[in-house]
Design a protein around this nucleic acid. Structure first.
Lengths: 227, 227
DNA sequence: GGAACTCCTTGACCTGAGTCAACTGCGGGA
DNA sequence: TCCCGCAGTTGACTCAGGTCAAGGAGTTCC
């Protein structure tokens, strides 16, 4: 745990266009924390007394089933906030949160943040935009889980990742078992699905690297075509 | 389509604690619309140029699978807003929206609303709280779809509904086929699941009315116990 | 260099739940 | 009062995908 300077906050989406005074006030209530790989940041049911921004590393937000299966709701990348919804509606965290790589995060006590929100329309609007995007992400996750087969979810993931990477070569940002949990399945099924794509020459797989060989086919599968 | 007065807006959660000036400005950009049962309010992919508040009636937000299965993301009740996330992040509506009963809704053009947000910290905070609650709802939907069986989802739904009704007698707010789509299943499976609960004397079913006879059993099923 | 991991892959099996089809019964309209 | 139609129920069948178990292939640590 350490102090945070205003310049630490500059450049993050949530704090863009903020007047300097607001940034300074935010920095004053913030504390910096380091987490080792695998370390818990918060658990489902904990009192949501803080909102976080990830500076460095990678963090997963996930739920567990009664028999221990894991659904990853979100993989947080550097610069993104997390725990917002819980902290801002003053209840418990609705999911678990764990660092999946060495990470540095900034913690804002919920009360302080809420108070600052009321005095900073720009911060409030930024927060609203962030929440809206999050909601979009969740809507598409619901769609995927309820209405798409695993092959379509995987195809969509690869296409999205290739857009982000601006390349046909996708390097998975997480281990395959975690990707499986993200896609709402298990690693065995992911492995089999990836094999079907490989056998059809739609992708080439080399460890964490996946090359898209036949984009149109992948798009058809993402749109619901059976394979 | 009709005009909206400030008093029409009073009392709705999103507009609570607003200074009179803000309410008046909101009313000035708002228009009132009536929808018949089954009428489309917007479709997935439409440009999200407005945010809505439902005054009367009932509205469903839903997605369709490639082969036409329906997942209801949300059932909007009187007083709630909808289309917020889409309108506030300036893209397309990510889902379909249809009135499931005769309804009256107020429409706020996205640009106007966004402008008002910047000038009304209280409105912004209300919006943030609303979005946060929505996000919680989605998180629990993801959890249900990915990690719970249909019986557990149904049990949880009944328990929640009974809390809202403050009674062991739950009157379904929607047709069973729509409830099925809400729970991420089909009406046949809902029917069979309900029968299993009936046979075990856990509930009594009379049309749209369901009496909870054995709450502890229902709680166990909601927590993942197989039946 | 090898032991002990952890991650991934593959095969065999099983089951929850979706599909299709038939039937029932209530409720509204003329 | 009699249809007609839609919501709901039930049975039979099918299958996507989860579980269990057994390797294999890198990695890390003595």
């Amino acid at each position: 745990m350490g102090a945070v300077t205003a310049s630490d906050l500059a450049g993050w989406q949530l704090f863009s266009y903020l007047p300097a005074g607001d940034t300074a006030r935010l920095a004053r209530v913030a504390t910096q924390h380091r987490f080792g790989k695998g370390q818990t940041i918060f658990s489902e049911g904990d009192q949501a007394d803080a909102l976080w921004v990830l500076l460095k590393g990678q963090v997963k937000i996930f739920k567990l089933s009664p028999d221990g299966r894991e659904q990853v709701m979100r993989i947080v990348r550097g610069g993104e906030s997390f725990g917002e919804a819980a902290a801002l509606s003053q209840g418990d965290y609705p999911a678990h949160c764990e660092a999946i790589a060495r990470s540095v995060a900034v913690r804002f006590p919920a009360n302080d943040f809420l108070a600052l929100l009321k005095g900073s329309p720009q911060l409030a609007v930024n927060m609203i935009v962030a929440l809206s995007q999050l909601l979009r992400g969740f809507a598409s996750l619901v769609d995927a889980l309820a209405l798409r087969e695993v092959s379509a979810r995987l195809a969509k993931y690869l296409l999205d990742a290739s857009v982000r990477a601006k390349s046909d070569a996708v390097v998975l940002e997480v281990r395959k078992s975690l990707l499986a949990a993200r896609l709402g399945t298990v690693s065995e099924t992911l492995s089999r699905t990836l094999r079907r794509l490989r056998e059809r020459r739609i992708v080439r797989v080399e460890g964490q690297r996946i090359d898209i060989l036949d984009r149109p086919a992948l798009q058809q599968i993402a749109a619901g075509m059976r394979i």
